[in-house]
Structure formats: C-alpha cells, structure tokens
Design a binder for these strands. Structure first.
Lengths: 365, 365
DNA sequence: TTGAAAGCGCTAACAG
DNA sequence: CTGTTAGCGCTTTCAA
C-alpha cells in the first residue's frame, strides 16, 4: 500500500538484495532468469523486486555488460507515414521480446559526422536499424565502418554486404500493371519518381516489361516525370491528361504522387475510376482515406519493420544471419480507384485481380 | 592518418589522459570546459582527444553524474506530419546546445505501465518532452508523479501544473473566421473534430463567437461533425454540401479534415475556391501540396518544439520557469483555397487578410 | 592547478 | 547454489 520509493531515489539491486537477504549477485541472477538460483530464492527475490518496484538501470547494465536491451532506429525523417509504419512494426517486434526501441532522427543541417553519431548510438543501444535516406553514400560508408550490429531497411535501392530488408518493387509494379491490363486497359500512363537507380527505377522497368510482354508498345509520352511528392504527381498527371490521346489508367510510382494525380484528374473534370483508373504504390494509411479510396500495391511496411528487428536480434545474439538480404513480397490492394475502361478495351483472359485481397487492413497489424 | 581506434574498442578518457600525460580528472575537466585547468594543458588535452577521436560515454556519465545530455520525447504516434514538425523543432533546439534528442513511441497495445516507462526514460535522459495523446488521463497522472524534468507539448487541451507549451486555438480560429468574413462570406460551415474539451472545442467556440460578433446567426445545420480524419472530413463536408442552402465557405477543424472536404467538394462537381472557399488549421506540410494549395491557420509547430526544449533545459539547469504555460500565437497562411464568394455577399471594411504572410514556408524552419 | 580515491548500479569471473 | 571481488567509464570529493 505504501509507496515503495519515497524520497531516496530509485530502488537499486542492492536494496532488493538486502531486503531479500541475499547477495546482489544472487538477486541479479534471479531477476535475469539465469541458472544457479534455487526456485525458492528466485521466487522470493522476484517478489521483493516487484513489491519494491525495482527496475534495472540500463545505463549501469550497459556499462557493465555491454547490453541495454535497447535498439536504436536511425530515421531520415519523421514526417511521413511510410516511415511511421516501418516504426510501428519494429516497435512491436522489439517489445515482444522485451526490448525497447528508440528513434534517432537524422537532420541534414550541420549534422555531426555520421561516424560520431553511430558511436553515440552504440553507447546505449545494442543494435541499430538504419532506414536509408535517398542517395546517402557517405552515410552508408559510416554504417559499414560501425562496430555494432546493424540492419538496413532499404526502401529505395541496394546496399550490398549489410543485412538488408527490402520489398520487391519489380514484382509489385508487375502486379499493378497486370491488374490494369486485366481490367482491360491498354493505354496506361506512368508517373515516375526521381531519376536514379533504386525502387523507382525498378517499378518503371516492370511497367515497361509487362507492357512489352503483352505486346503493347511502350509510349514514351505516357511516362511522365514526378518526384515522389504530391505536387510532383499533380503536375506529372496533368501533362498526361493534356495528351491528345490520354491514358485510360495511370500508375503512380507511390501513393503520395497518386494523391496529386487524383487532384489533377478531378480538376480536369474527370472522375476516378469512371474516366481514368488510378493505382498507387506503398499503401500508406492515407491511401484508404481518399475519395475514392486508392487501389495500390502494399509494401509490407509493418512486416518489414518487424523483420528488421528480428534479423537484428539474431545478429545481437550471435546467430549467423543466413541471408544478407531479405526481400518481402508486395500485395495488390484493390479499393475503388480502378475499374474497366469506359470503352471496353481488350480484356485479358482472367479478369479477376490476381492474388488480391480487397481488404483495407494493414499487413498483420 | 592512421585510424585512431583500431581493434581495442572505443577510446576512453583514460587513453586521452595517458597520451596527454595528465590525470583522468584533468582531462575530464579540460574536455568539459570546467575551470581549474591551465589554458595550455587544456589545449593539449583537447588536441589529443580530437586526434584520438574521443567521445564521452554517455552511459558512464549518466551513471556517475546523472547527466547524459540527452532529452527524450514521448510521442503518441509517428505517422502524422503534425508530430513530425514538433520533433523537427525540438531536435533543432536540442542540437544547438549540444544535446541529443531521442524519441520514444507510445503504443496502445499491451503497454507497460506508464510509470515504468517513465522510469526507463529517466535512466538515460535528463529530461522529457511529452506530446500528449488525446484524453489520456492516467498518462498525465504518471507525468505528475515522475521525478524528472518534464515539459508537456499540449496541442489539444489543458494540463495544469506541468510546464506546458501550447498554441492559441481560439485566436487562430478567430483569425480564420475573420478572414472568411472579410472576403465577404456570411454562410460559413464548420467541420468539427471529436466532441471533447480541448483544441477542437476552442476552435468551435471561436467560430460561434466571431459569427455572433458580426451579427450573424449561428446555424446549427452548418456545424458538421467529423473526427480529425480525412474520411471524417469528407463525410462531414458532404453533409454540408447537400444542404438546401449550402455554405459558401467551409472552415475545417484541421488540415487533414480539410483534405477530405476538398475531395468532397470536387466530387460534387464544385470548384475551390470558385464555388466554395476552404480553410484548414495546423499548416502541416501537405497543406501546401494540394490543389489548390490550402489556406490555413498555422500552428507554430516547429517553434513549439523548440520552445519545449528550451523550457526543459531551463528546468534541467535549475532555472525557475517563469510561466508554467506558454501559449504561442497562430498565423493566417493565405494560399489559394479561399476567395470572395461568387455572388458577392456583404464585404467587411478591411478586406485584406489580417497579419497574413502569404508564404508557404514552415515556421522559421 | 593538479591528482588520488571512491563510487554511480550492474554483472563477469572466480571462489566457496 | 551462493557469495566476493573487480571493473565497466566517468565525475565527485577531498587532498596536495
């Protein structure tokens, strides 16, 4: 009933040990689930610890042990839902095994040296999950040099030699294209992201391949350059809409660009999906909030976050990571922004959405 | 030229001291800018430390000293731009005084006790910035009970007795209303958030007051219930649009709801701002990305984050915080979603936007 | 101005 | 099964 810790600071292991009438070591062993303690002693120690509200001091343990049961996530940016979803998965997985997750944000402006930053993180975290920003080669260099367990969450391109979790952009984009083709579209526009190797390039390649595979011409006019932003998507879509023969469907490189496209299509007095079908990529939470809700390719972001933590923990615990690069599958999420084209168009054999689960739920959230 | 730390772990203070030919204490004093070291000795120690790439171990310092120069931010959610902006400001301010900022995310599901969590944070952070989630009274209780410096970033309601940074919702909403009135609107709809005391209620009150002050009737039909979400804003706006005499302007309780309203308006075949003016609240980054870009009330989110850190640092350094609650001003950001109503309407004396800076830039970003 | 000793809270390594 | 000793890297306190 009485508050355990009144005025004399946090309860330490010494307090617990004393109250339990055992040595600190025994108390430590008991509380950490180590062997070498009688069941009875262990029970008693745990009881006292609980009663006193004891909590191990992570700074002390890290200093003594090298372990804090904390993993750090290095995030380039905290203002987008994409990264938010990644963090949800990572946090969940960490908590499940009694680890804590802390997020450290990268800021561009007068940044301390990457190397310096990594050493700081190493001082209190047992391992690091790095969410890569676009094109940061020196940053990646620092990761290579760092002497702590690291897993890279790579939603853009490729990082060799470091354990990496990514999703299959080529496959995802292929699925999107097949979905549109099966609905009967043959004149499909593509809204690109920045022109650099990586996810965007993979998706564009898939767009071209699938078109070619179906004997359709790849019309350069139908590829409109954006930059992953809503405004970029808006402008790119507008260019597509002003074409003499405009597409009946648009595939946006990511959901945010698709939002811009949606704006542009509506502004042109057209309707989605009646006049134009629209499909995005990522399935961030907002994708289900637009009107009409966006059909999109889901990257398993939550799963990726979880997977990163599990791979990291394996590394921390000295288990050899079998595969240095885990590529997770994408999934078609059919909502209401895609439909057959107005004037029919040729229809492919199986008109159902391949492997589609028309649910708006998050990936095993 | 040669790498300073090759195989034998991080450089410690002992290494530096030895190389400099002084005691650890002298090295410590020199590096921490304490008095009691000759200028010459200090210079030498600093030189060696730099050369060796020494970096103080925060875990050790925290253990010894109680200080880590780390501040923790407790965030309810990392998937919204609102909180992202807050964090940008906080991170910037912390870095400026050589502190680091770490973010800890609150998850709803099977949460450890709040008390427990705060004690964890206290073990490595010197102070805490708590971004309040909606209606979490037990959480606030834990904050009261915590024995560490705390500042509350309260974007919703009121928390007495804890130093708090907030912005002025009533004032902001008043400015928004006056902007619409000055443009000539008199039939103005309001999209609410959840029905609870706090920010949303303040904004609604302002809506009603300003209307009354201008001799305009507050028509309950024009107040449409949403929930801060895009979908909620969509539905609420749709109800407004189906009114026999629909409003010429809509004031959404936040930007996200305004995005939904924009969807609804366009879907109804109407144009913003030609047929209907639309104004939001918050000025999250996406507000400038819609088409048309959203006129909105800017909460100084970055500034709020900065202010929270500074208040916290004052507390950490034992300086008495003068005011327990800092309320920061809001600002009208005129973009392209507001205009005079189509059929004129009565125009108020000064038709210019009050205190408006029609810039899309972030607040002193 | 400098240094030596002690200790922050914990655990590894070695006794008993 | 349990306890003792030593030490993680740093800073405080006290002495020179």
């Amino acid at each position: 009933m009485d508050k355990p810790r009144s005025s004399d600071g946090p309860v330490t292991l010494a307090h617990v040990a004393e109250r339990a009438g055992v040595s600190q070591m025994t108390a430590s062993r008991a509380l950490n689930g180590r062997t070498g303690v009688s069941a009875k002693t262990r029970r008693e120690v745990v009881r006292i610890a609980t009663q006193l509200g004891y909590r191990v001091n992570v700074a002390a343990r890290k200093l003594s042990n090298g372990r804090s049961r904390i993993i750090a996530v290095l995030a380039p940016d905290l203002t987008n839902q994409f990264i938010g979803q990644l963090l949800i998965g990572a946090g969940e997985a960490a908590r499940k095994v009694d680890y804590e997750m802390l997020v450290y944000t990268l800021f561009d402006e007068n940044r301390r040296s990457h190397d310096d930053m990594l050493r700081l993180l190493q001082q209190f975290a047992d391992g690091l999950i790095a969410i890569l920003p676009r094109g940061a080669t020196d940053y990646v260099q620092a990761l290579y040099a760092a002497s702590m367990p690291i897993v890279v969450l790579d939603h853009r391109g490729e990082v060799a030699a470091l354990p990496t979790i990514a999703s299959n952009h080529y496959e995802g984009a292929s699925i999107a294209m097949r979905h549109l083709l099966e609905l009967g579209h043959s004149r499909i526009g593509f809204l690109t992201g920045p022109d650099e190797p990586g996810a965007c390039a993979d998706r564009l390649t898939a767009y071209q391949h699938v078109l070619a595979q179906h004997g359709l011409r790849v019309d350069p006019q139908l590829i409109s350059a954006g930059d992953y932003t809503q405004r970029g998507g808006f402008e790119a879509a507008r260019r597509l809409l002003s074409l003499r023969k405009r597409p009946t469907a648009i595939f946006a490189v990511n959901d945010v660009a698709a939002f811009g496209a949606l704006d542009a299509i509506k502004d042109a007095g057209l309707s989605v999906p009646h006049d134009i079908s629209l499909i995005g990529f990522d399935d961030i939470p907002m994708a289900s909030q637009t009107h009409p809700p966006l059909t999109t390719i889901r990257q398993p972001l939550v799963w990726m976050g979880r997977s990163a933590v599990n791979t990291l923990l394996a590394q921390i615990n000295g288990i050899d990571v079998a595969s240095p690069r885990v590529t997770l599958p994408t999934e078609l999420v059919v909502r209401a922004s895609t439909a057959p084209p107005q004037n029919g168009g040729r229809v492919l054999p199986s008109a159902g959405a391949r492997g589609a689960k028309p649910s708006a739920q998050g990936c095993e959230l």
